[in-house]
Design a protein around this nucleic acid. Structure first.
Length: 638
RNA sequence: GCCGUUGUAGCUCAGCUGGUAGAGCAGCUCACUCGUAAUGAGCAGGUCGUCCGUUCGAUUCGGAUCAACGGCUCCA
């Protein structure tokens, strides 16, 4: 039998019989390694661990403890779930696709006779466990395209047939385990026995191939881990995340509410929530002024003709609210740019005036589809920390970098990690190909210069220009777009914005649309989850609560409270005739940073005894000292 | 907008197959004057999301509608 040379990642070369599999090699190194091996990289291509090696190659075993290995494991888990569902529901269900995703996997089924519900989960999990313990080998099979089509057509799997028909290849690969067969590129784990810890988590509707024109499928979400302990840990983390849900905390902390009577997606800010957002807004105004922006304010409604001129009417109408009075139609603004352009246009501009940076905390309204509303994270009326920068083409690069730096500074204050994405021209858009090219190149080169990693999101730009999106994560690791920078050559054209250059000629400025927090509403929602409601002192709506031990100190406690308030501390007094333990418990549940205890000792000494919400009690201080301490903490955004 | 689920007191929830509703917490009143996460007793609180239908009778069954929730599509 002929031999082949296998080069391992550490440089070791093994001489083995032709037809040896990666799994054999793993086994030759150790049984533990073999148990961990889910697949392999052969000359840098993913293959099954059971693939016979035919020629000299480099080999890297893919083990379960790597992200790549876990993904393959979960993909195999998806097959196992589909297998179980087919066993249980037979030809009533058709299989479609089932990939691994972050934290788990899903599988989409078409089924008209049964609607999956959580009541089915246990049954499916039981069947999965049964199939897993049956130790079914998972076998790859390569088939001519037409043969595969015939096979799946014979099984009544119309969706699989459609998938294969759209593949422009001669051969396709299938994976079999027991009676179950699925079209799949692979690779997969060697046997079902490896699958030990999985759990169905939810069921939801999903469109076939992600298009709302297609059939609605039933998607079963599930997760899988190498062992039960890790699965349990993951489920506990989910539970923990649910506790921080901003909708739950928003009510418990009395920050905001929604009202059926007012309308869906319209936030009603209670005093503490309004204080929180006001503090953010004040922070924003200061930071913008520091960076050479000017504060402006535009009207809430503008004549419909203006929206026609801007292109919003043609491209964004279905998301807008309109109102008609005295035969004149107005559009409620979904964006703030129009007024800003009117400000620019209100007089002749010289190149010496540029860049013009207009900042507005602008309230906009967008008629979002009913099914997308989600607490504060997706609403119909929201406040953007919006700015439009009008500059010369030469200034563009510097301005984009300035905004990227601004974003970095602000996210640093809150301790957010974020991801960057560059979104390019969508199908529905205005402007010339050339302008889109210049705008996209400008964003890309600024991004490249920062050295930060970013993804490209083809066709996901705004209708008037490409954009850089910044996404931050909520407690459940869902990503939310907050900051965005959009480069626009088109609206300046439509509004005939000009400046006089050094050559005395008219030139066209470029406009950057950008937000930093994105929407105050959304940002507050993400912040609540980020801090689990334990806001740092500088944005805590109530920074301290004065608690007296008995009625005897009520007058002094009130006096302390007044004094602290005079010195800028956001303080409340709880002078009720209740036990101290009870009042502390309440303040604790309100997540107030400091409880200021006042008993006879403090009253006699003219002090107060702070207790931090962490449980730490501090030495008594006088009110002026405490106010100074709060002021210094806030100055450092703590 | 689409698929699925849900909608009972301020909050969290109970209420079998149709005979107009309960608990805990919160609230109010009273007593207790108390030192770092719940003092005790009493009282009050709901046209059972809304509308229509079936029925002698609907919180319970059917339909519509609104909203919320989990996703999809879309988006700050």
């Amino acid at each position: 039998m002929s031999k082949v040379k296998i080069t391992l990642p550490d440089g070791t070369v093994k001489d083995v019989d032709q037809g040896t599999t990666p799994l054999d090699i793993a086994l030759s190194i150790g049984a533990g390694l073999a148990r961990q091996t889910v697949a392999a990289r052969l000359d840098d291509c993913q293959v099954d661990a059971t693939t016979p090696i035919q020629q000299d190659s480099s080999l890297q075993l893919i083990t379960l403890n790597t992200p790549e290995g876990l993904e393959i494991y979960r993909h195999s888990s998806a097959h196992l779930m589909a297998h179980a569902v087919k066993e249980l529901f037979g030809n009533d269900v058709q299989v479609t696709i089932g990939p691994a995703i972050e934290d788990g996997f899903y599988y989409d089924f078409f089924c008209e006779t049964h609607t999956f519900s959580p009541d089915d989960f246990e049954l499916i999990e039981k069947k999965m466990a049964e199939l897993a313990s049956a130790d079914l080998p998972i076998v790859r099979e390569v088939m001519k395209r037409d043969d595969a089509i015939a096979l799946f057509r014979g099984m009544g799997e119309d969706y699989k047939v459609e998938l294969i028909q759209d593949l422009e290849v001669e051969e396709v690969s299938l994976y079999r385990q027991g009676s179950f067969v699925d079209l799949c590129r692979g690779p997969h784990i060697p046997s079902t026995k490896m699958l030990k810890a999985f759990k169905l988590t939810s069921v939801a509707g999903a469109y076939w191939r992600g298009s709302e024109d297609n059939a609605m499928l039933q998607r079963l979400y599930a997760t899988a881990f190498p062992d039960k302990k890790e699965l349990k840990k993951y489920l506990a983390r989910l539970e923990e995340a649910r506790k921080r849900d901003h909708r739950k905390l928003g009510r418990e902390l009395d920050l905001f509410s929604f009202s059926d009577e007012a309308g869906a997606g319209l936030v009603i800010w209670h005093p503490k929530g309004a204080m929180l957002r006001t503090l953010l807004e004040n922070f924003e105004r200061e930071e913008h002024l520091k960076r050479g922006y000017e504060l402006v304010v535009g009207p809430q409604i503008l004549r419909t003709e203006l929206w026609q001129k801007s292109g919003h009417f043609d491209n964004y109408r279905e998301n807008m609210y309109f109102t008609e009075v005295d035969g004149q139609s107005y559009g409620v603004k979904p964006m703030n740019c129009l007024a800003h352009m009117l400000i620019y246009k209100s007089k002749r501009r010289s190149y010496r005036d540029l860049p013009q940076r207009y900042f507005e905390l602008g309230m906009v309204h967008r008629h979002e589809k009913s099914g997308v509303l989600h607490g504060l994270l997706r609403v119909r009326g929201f406040t953007q920390d919006d700015a439009h920068i009008l500059c010369t083409p030469e200034q563009l690069d510097g301005e984009i970098k300035g905004v990227l730096k601004f974003i970095q500074d602000v996210m640093g204050v809150f301790g957010f990690e974020y991801e960057l994405e560059l979104s390019t021209r969508p199908d529905k858009s205005i402007g010339s190909e050339e302008d889109w090219g210049r705008a996209t190149a400008a964003l890309q080169s600024a991004l490249d210069d920062t050295g930060l990693p970013y993804d490209i999101n083809e066709g996901d730009g705004a209708f008037y220009g490409p954009k850089i999106d910044i996404k931050i994560k909520d407690a459940l690791d869902r990503k939310w777009q907050c900051a965005t920078i959009q480069c626009d050559f088109t609206l300046p054209e439509r509004f005939d914005l000009t400046y006089i250059g050094s050559d005395g000629e008219k030139h066209r400025p470029v406009m950057l649309h950008r937000v930093i927090l994105g929407a105050i509403e959304r940002f507050v929602g993400v912040l609540i989850e980020h801090y689990a409601g334990n806001f740092p002192l500088w944005i805590a709506p109530v920074q301290a609560k004065v608690l007296n031990v008995t009625d005897n100190q009520a007058a002094y406690a009130q006096q302390v409270c007044d004094q602290l308030r005079q010195q800028g501390v956001r303080v409340q007094a709880d002078l009720r005739n209740e036990k101290l333990g009870f009042k502390i418990r309440e303040a604790q549940m309100e997540k107030v940073p400091y409880m200021l205890v006042i008993g006879d000792k403090e009253m006699d000494a003219g002090t107060l005894s702070p207790r931090h919400r962490s449980g730490e009690t501090l030495d008594p201080v006088n009110p002026a000292e405490f106010a100074a301490f709060v002021k210094e903490e806030c100055r450092q955004y703590r």
